[in-house]
């Protein structure tokens, strides 16, 4: 990284940032809270969600803070009426079509901050049948009924003891695809398929994960912000109503399977390990693990 500096103006204040920094870096450095959904430090920006947009003087449209580099003399507004409108609408559009009830606290916070009212688009349409969204014909859809708002609701996919995919909760942030691909795992087991509102995360021909290239590293679960991808024990607890964050403890340890030295965070409820993650700022893992660190405890626990 260069040590040259760039001067820009944020909300009327002149600030200096490193050359090559994005507008998001600049905002964060100056304590301006900026919502993000598809951005993660350890993944290449896809700038797809558009919740991070800011107003850039001289630009016809708003620009995504997460991927736009700061250029000398840029003047941006982070809380103008246009910015608030777009952020609010993006959150409303998502929450009206996706089940965000398990989205992380940060996202719940954005919803409050922008007064998102997803109900305004009307009563939600019934969930689609199993597999129906995976087979939609590209470029075609049934006309809306004039009474309900379409959603991505669909039956949850459970095919093994490790891993649950509940795409009713998927906001299509592409994080899992990136984590599975060049950004971490290099397995390329999943990709976006279909188009438009019928776009979805899928394996080839929607095969089960255990028939796909998946190696069960769990990295996609680690990055999923909405609970669409979940460890099976966590899912089971939630289904049974026994998921109890208050009683859980988190223990840091180092994975003992090999000599790489990956940091692990074990989330424990009633002496049972219910989730394993790795800190995104840990320089060995960048937040990513392999099947042994991620799921090895299942065997440790002798279940």
């Amino acid at each position: 990284m260069s040590d040259r500096q760039v001067e820009i103006s944020i909300d009327g204040n002149d600030v200096t940032v490193n050359e090559g920094a994005t507008l998001l870096d600049a905002c964060r450095e100056h304590n301006i809270e900026t919502p993000t959904l598809c951005y993660l430090e350890n993944l290449t920006p896809v700038n797809a969600c558009r919740v991070c947009v800011v107003e850039l003087e001289g630009s016809r449209t708003l620009v995504p803070a997460c991927s736009r580099q700061a250029e000398p003399g840029m003047k941006i507004q982070t809380d103008s009426e246009r910015v608030r409108h777009s952020r609010k609408l993006v959150l409303e559009l998502l929450a009206s079509s996706v089940d965000m009830s398990l989205a992380n606290d940060e996202i719940q916070g954005f919803m409050k901050r922008y007064d998102a009212e997803p109900e305004k688009f009307g009563k939600t349409a019934p969930a689609s049948a199993e597999g129906e969204r995976d087979r939609r014909r590209t470029g075609h859809h049934h006309a809306p009924d004039g009474a309900t708002a379409e959603t991505v609701a669909q039956p949850v996919k459970i095919h093994d003891e490790m891993y649950v995919r509940d795409y009713s909760r998927c906001i299509l942030c592409y994080k899992c695809v990136e984590a599975c691909g060049v950004d971490a795992q290099n397995s390329f087991a999943i990709s976006a398929a279909g188009r438009g509102f019928d776009a979805r995360i899928s394996t080839e021909f929607n095969t089960r994960l255990d028939d796909s290239a998946c190696v069960y590293c769990g990295n996609c679960i680690g990055v999923c912000p909405t609970g669409a991808l979940m460890f099976k024990p966590e899912h089971d607890h939630r289904e049974a109503g026994t998921w109890d964050e208050a009683s859980q403890s988190v223990t840091r340890t180092v994975c003992s399977y090999c000599g790489v030295g990956c940091n692990l965070e074990l989330r424990v409820q009633d002496n049972e390990i219910v989730r394993v993650t790795s800190p995104t700022d840990h320089d060995v893992t960048d937040g990513h693990l392999c099947i042994k660190g991620r799921f090895g405890w299942q065997f440790v626990q002798n279940r």
Partner: peptide, 9 residues
């Protein structure tokens, strides 16, 4: 039908 589906708006 023709939206690529990449961005939320």
């Amino acid at each position: 039908d023709e939206s690529c589906g990449q961005c939320v708006p």
